[in-house]
Amino acid sequence: MSSFRGLAIYAHPPNSNSSPFHLPADKIPVQTLKKADFLCKIDKLLAVDPGTVKGPEILADLPVWDSLAAIGFVALLDDELGITLPSGKMEQCKTVADLVALAGNQVQP
């Protein structure tokens, strides 16, 4: 389970036929991704070549990072990992690594 559970990030089973509202929290299956795969998904979101983003990049310096990309990232977390961000979390992200950190231990080395 995401290390952010304590911060009330809400997890639901992505692409599952079961409604999360009918499952106790400890029964919700958790989706995980390898960090390299997750970074590739961010590459795809930003429409750049796979392997482009590594982590230290500053979001404000990326010409392709805008509010629509940020919305796409919120959707990516929701679709791929079942993580719905609580208010204010996106605002705190300054780098790609900060985005990855939002996934907690659902993104693994």
Binding site: F21, V74, D78
Partner: peptide, 19 residues
Amino acid sequence: MNGPEIFAFTLNTIPKTVH
């Protein structure tokens, strides 16, 4: 309008509201 925040709010709130 802070689009990402509004989007996150909606995903957080509306499915629960429907149920």
